[in-house]
């Protein structure tokens, strides 16, 4: 069979009985998405896709990665990205392509050997396109996850004002280098913004302090000092204290306190504020 024929051949398969095929395709995709996307939307998506596919098959060969399918792939990229963002599964995304194969099956039952051959060739292209949607889907999910990680990093490092002139950062979770950097920059900025002279770094929620975390801590404390502020480290739990000692890290003249409350009391005292319990206050 000449190559020219085979091209028009597949386009022919898609064009014959077009309305029925497209309608059935749309119905089965709408069904698989269980009403989470409106039928009108799916209708628009799939008709556009179908038109692009027919055009591509008229224009070029059957290589699913070929240039003539770039419009089709662009539409599929958009579809996959939307599905990924809306929380659909990879299967629910790929089915949008694969369901088209099913729409051709009825015609296959009483078709000729040639029809079967055409169906199989179309099948191969659709399989490749379905894989393409999964790839795009996965890439989009990865982008979403990494942007969430960045947001979390910012979110989970609040600098709070405890008192006039006293700020604190409670560190929670695993500290990697990037996160420690963010925390420390935020702390220094907050010192400037609030005009505070006392900062408390509370590490109660940190599971491990290694040399890198310690180095970031030490650098921040030195930088804070250069800005005229004093830092206290609080919440060093017993297992962390023992590990720091075994590692050989020296905190030198850095003030440490067992709890955030102790650190606050010290910071207030240094700011010239005395906490006095009233008589009859129940203490």
């Amino acid at each position: 069979m000449a190559k020219q024929d085979s091209k028009s051949d597949l386009a022919g398969l898609l064009s014959a009985d077009r309305e029925r095929v497209v309608d059935q395709w749309i119905d089965s995709v709408v069904g698989s998405l269980k009403g989470r996307i409106s039928k009108a939307e799916v209708d628009r998506e799939l008709r556009e896709l179908y038109a692009a596919l027919v055009e591509a098959l008229v224009a070029g060969g059957e290589d699913a990665r070929g240039d003539h399918l770039s419009e089709t792939r662009a539409l599929l990229t958009e579809l996959s990205r939307n599905r990924a963002r809306q929380g659909f599964t990879p299967s629910e995304t790929a089915i949008s392509v694969l369901a088209l194969k099913r729409a051709f099956e009825p015609a296959l039952r009483d078709g000729s050997a040639e029809d079967t051959d055409r169906y199989l060739r179309l099948s191969r292209i659709l399989d490749d396109l379905a894989l393409f949607t999964i790839e795009t889907y996965t890439r989009t999910r990865e982008e979403i996850i990494s942007s969430q990680a960045t947001q979390l990093m910012e979110l989970s490092t609040p600098v709070v004002k405890l008192w006039d002139g006293v700020i604190a950062v409670p560190l929670v979770g695993t500290l990697d280098s990037a996160r420690t950097q963010v925390v420390m920059e935020k702390l220094l900025q907050a010192l400037v913004d609030t005009g505070s002279e006392q900062a408390i770094i509370d590490i109660t929620g940190v599971p491990a302090v290694d040399t890198q975390v310690a180095q970031h801590l030490l650098k921040t404390i030195v930088a804070a000092r250069l800005m005229g502020a004093e830092c206290t480290v609080s919440g060093i739990r017993p297992q962390i204290a023992q590990t720091i000692v075994a590692l050989g890290i020296e905190f030198g003249d850095i003030v440490t306190k067992a709890t955030l409350a102790d650190a606050l009391q010290l910071a207030l005292k240094k700011s010239g504020i005395d906490l006095v319990a009233h008589q009859g206050g129940g203490r």
Binding site: A208, T211, Q239, I240, Q242, A246
Partner: peptide, 28 residues
């Protein structure tokens, strides 16, 4: 790597101090 090691350290029931020490060494 640190998280994987934490899992193993917990699995073999190291004390909290020993877990933290081992995880920190692995981190280094």
């Amino acid at each position: 790597a640190r998280q994987q090691v934490r899992g193993h350290a917990q699995q073999c029931k190291l004390s909290l101090v020993d877990q933290t020490k081992f995880i920190t060494a692995a981190s280094e």
